[in-house]
Amino acid sequence: MRNTLWIRVMATVLATFAALSFARGNVSAKLMASLTQTTLPTVQWFTPNLIPLGTTTFIINGTGYQTGAVAFLDGMPLPTTFLNATQLRATTNVMQSGSGYITILNPNATAPSKPYLIEFGAGIKLSLNPATANVAPGGRLQLTATVNGTANKVVYWYVNGGGSISQTGLYVAPLAAQTTPVTIRIVSAEFAARQATATLTITGPSAPVQISISPLAANVMAATAQQFTALVTGSNNKGSTWPVNGVTNGNASFGTISNNGYYVAL
């Protein structure tokens, strides 16, 4: 009797343990499936790199693709064939050069991959006008950037070889002529691999050194002060001296002036 009871108890314990193990296994499997589904696919590159215009089939290379995955171009689904976990085949019918963004959505996923830039035809093209020019020492030149193939027209401006350039394309030449040309380069804010350059030659006589003062005239009462400002052009040295009636920084008879142009009448 005791043996029979012991066998029944052990059978019940084993059955309960097996049921719990099975339940835990299901929970674990569901958890793993959930984790797998929340791992987003990625897009890394396309074959070919530039997609020809017209009806074209191309390969999307990346990671995390599942059977039934769909590629989207700017939110529109494309005919897509699953090849393996790292490759999909998709078909487009784009008739104009430009660019867009590809995303991948796996079946049962709640979110697509991060957008990845794709180019069609000529893709994104940048140009500079003028492409070549002569600039006098100390002179200025306004360059114009043209961006095709993307709605984002922002470019970043860089200069190599001397002078400076603003982010609106205004170039200021160095103060002396030079034999080495200056290169202006623009980079697309949308796709940094797309760039354009212009070549400038700094030629001609050096810019003369000139200085101006503001204001040119002022009425200053005794025991009052007046701020003057000096502007030096044609030289990298912007320093200046301030004489009053020929006396550097003035004196008690003519008034005094500081090295930054602050005059005090005595």
Rank of each mutant, 00 (worst) to 15 (best):
F228K: 01
G261D: 14
M10T: 10
S214F: 08
A218E: 12
T146Y: 01
F46G: 02
A23I: 01
I165M: 15
Y65F: 10
P208I: 02
V232T: 00
P181N: 05
N93K: 02
A217N: 13
N219L: 14
F82K: 07
N108R: 10
I7T: 13
G68R: 11
I51P: 09
A193R: 09
P41D: 06
E190V: 00
I124D: 11
G139S: 12
F46A: 07
N236F: 05
P115E: 03
T63V: 06
S113M: 14
T248N: 10
N249M: 01
S113H: 08
T103F: 06
G68Q: 10
V27L: 06
T91F: 05
N148H: 07
A177Q: 08
N260E: 04
N148A: 12
L53Q: 08
I202G: 06
L40A: 05
Y262D: 06
I124M: 14
G255K: 04
T67H: 14
T241A: 09
A145Q: 00
V70R: 10
W242S: 02
N259D: 13
T199L: 06
P115L: 03
I211E: 10
M10F: 00
V154D: 14
T4N: 15
K114P: 05
L40S: 13
A90H: 00
N3K: 11
Y158V: 09
A145G: 00
G62E: 10
V159K: 02
L53R: 09
A145E: 01
N245D: 06
P52C: 15
S164K: 15
V220P: 14
G246D: 05
N26W: 02
G239K: 12
K238F: 06
T57I: 08
I202W: 08
P48N: 14
A133D: 09
Y101A: 04
S99C: 12
A225K: 11
T224N: 15
Q167E: 08
A90R: 07
S212P: 01
S206N: 10
M32W: 01
T67E: 11
R2W: 12
A133C: 06
K238W: 02
P79E: 00
A69V: 09
A193N: 13
